[in-house]
Nucleic acid binder design. Structure first.
Lengths: 359, 359
DNA sequence: TTGTAAGCGTTATCAA
DNA sequence: TTGATAACGCTTACAA
């Protein structure tokens, strides 16, 4: 049987390499070389080929090339649902910028959603369609009994250290940032602190909690001085923290939050009840999202190097794809820094004025 | 010449379809059928094949399949830099959800950046590697003399109506939303209005300006009653609008903003100077981003159906890819609605109290 | 420097 | 219901 081959005129699939070859009166190999190693083709033929390419509007069929070459210049980026958009968008921008200037395209993947969709993401990794994977603040659970790290392509994890030695991790110094948050308040004189955390099983939270607790001990704070409140990294976590705050007979004067959304949710809620920030209570956030500067009052917070987190991860992946073994030692740790704004101040004096609602 | 074919043991490229066929003692055609049309294979062989697939951990090579089948189950999503993350992230979520449940993967593309990167995005469209394209609030300029809409695959535009009849557009009723913004203020009694716009050549802004102007005329406002301020859709646009506000000898009492960021930037700035919102000045936003609810005061704004904008676009694309001509008439228009919160109120009475800074 | 031709791993056609 | 086999469009030995 012979499937009829399309003649010189291209049908709906566009021109192929041999259309170009025929038009330029060279072989397909030469056309291919013009595209991949122009210098290996004599000037004259090269311009002829280039003209033919332009005239026909030829673009190589990516599937055919991938099949032949065994790589696709595609990277899968998996964003965990734990990563809030104001945070992850900036990380993604770093990734995308770095990757696209190296000629890679980015495929978006979620690992939440139903089993079916999760499996499809894992299939993607195993389908030889990908050159590498970046995971943002998530631990990629296996789906369908297979894990993404076993797919045989480089994996980089941002914000979370995966225990697998094959994955390169780019981390933030969670513990020392959390310690900085607390220490800033204790240095101001605060002695009763509420710690508004994310989910306690969250990777980052575990490390931040440790940093917080160590710093608290070092500052001489006891368990009685500290209220723990587990939030959800959303505004509502801050709202429930505010309710917790109001329920206390002796209220904390300093609030350490594990991200900015919760800090803002807290502030909004207590202010609505007449509590002044920072006169009555000081609040420190974590992340340094854009809004931390424009909320009321502007938020003292830990500025994460969000863009750099993404860009660094992308660069690590690129060199891992390139096969360079000397990628650097794996946990590459970036540093956050405290930005002092208007949501923090000295604690109210011992003779606290009771404020009533409404000015 | 004969390239040595790998023997039964798979090397680093993973098992292929004929490894499975051999293990299950069937032909490759049967394995392929088990995957694409399971019912056409006898029960017994099918289970044998399935077992072999599981045992070997086989995943079809996507490049080979794409080459053969001529489609890739991939969609390119281009996000214009005009689309702020708080807005676009939600649109993207709608797209991603809809697309991934239909089995499509999403490739991220920017059409800003240098010519080189832009061209790579366009190449992607022409490389037969894509089944369709979605553009979010951007007009895809041609790169390298070729436009994305000529690539021969379906294109959907969200938030912007492209003039090309081949592209399906999902729009917001910009004009009537802007009219609603203004009318809400005039109904409250405001008579001097400042309109803080995005860049005036922006597609959405053009329509919003028209809606605003029509509504202003209808409300009997004259040019003297209106201050136009061109912003940039960022916080700084709101900040500069505030400077403009302060520079006026007679200040407007109502501010209509073309997005929430500018509204929040404006509020933050004027409040810092002691102006009260809404007692001294009312502010209306546009978009309904998450933060509009948690800023101070919470923002009266137009809630855009961000998720639905994305989901609707994705569904339209999917049916266009499926080749159904009856996709529906092209400009599909979704509606925003006004959410009244705390940033708006009646204008200050004619005997305006001059307020000084600091309580 | 150029051309010839053998695959890359699927799917789909045809024949059995 | 199954199996043999020809493409899909490209890259790259190898030969010239």
């Amino acid at each position: 049987m012979t499937t009829r081959r399309r003649s010189s005129r291209s049908d709906d699939t566009g021109p192929r390499i041999d259309d170009v070859a025929r038009a330029a009166n060279v072989s397909t190999a030469t056309v291919s070389r013009v595209l991949s190693a122009p210098d290996s083709v004599k000037e004259e033929k090269r311009t002829r080929v280039l003209e033919a390419i332009a005239a026909l509007g030829y673009t190589p069929n990516a599937a055919a090339r991938n099949l032949r070459v065994g790589s696709s210049k595609m990277v899968l980026v998996i964003v965990s649902h734990r990563a809030n958009p104001p945070f992850s968008a900036e990380v993604l921008r770093g990734i995308e910028t770095e990757l696209s200037s190296a000629g890679y395209a980015v495929i978006m993947g979620n690992l939440h959603g139903d089993e079916d969709r999760r499996r499809r993401v894992v299939d993607l990794a195993y389908s030889r369609h990908l050159d590498g994977i970046i995971v943002i603040s998530g631990n990629p659970q296996a789906a369908g009994g297979r894990s993404i790290v076993d797919a045989g392509i480089p994996v980089v994890s941002i914000c979370v250290a995966l225990d697998d030695p094959r994955v390169f991790s780019v981390l933030l110094d969670d513990a020392s940032c959390a310690a900085t948050q607390l220490r800033y308040l204790t240095d101001l004189g605060h002695e009763r602190i509420m710690y508004v955390t994310g989910p306690l099983d969250n990777y980052n939270q575990i490390h931040r909690s440790k940093g917080f607790n160590d710093a608290a001990a070092q500052a001489g704070l006891t368990a009685d001085d500290i209220v723990m409140h587990e939030g959800d990294y959303g505004f509502s976590g801050g709202v429930s923290a505010a309710e917790n705050y109001f329920a206390r007979s002796t209220r904390p004067t300093g609030i350490v939050c594990s991200n900015d959304e919760m800090a803002i949710g807290f502030i909004k809620t207590v202010r609505a009840a007449g509590v002044r920030v920072p006169e009555d209570v000081s609040v420190v956030g974590f992340d340094g999202i854009e809004f931390s500067e424009f909320c009321e009052p502007s938020l003292t917070t830990i500025q994460q190097p969000r863009y750099e987190l993404g860009a660094t991860g992308a660069r690590a992946l690129i060199s891992a794809i390139g096969g360079s073994e000397a990628v650097g030692r794996s946990p590459e740790i970036l540093h956050g820094c405290l930005i002092v704004r208007d949501s923090t101040g000295k604690p109210p004096s011992a003779f606290r004025r009771k404020r009533t609602i409404n000015p």
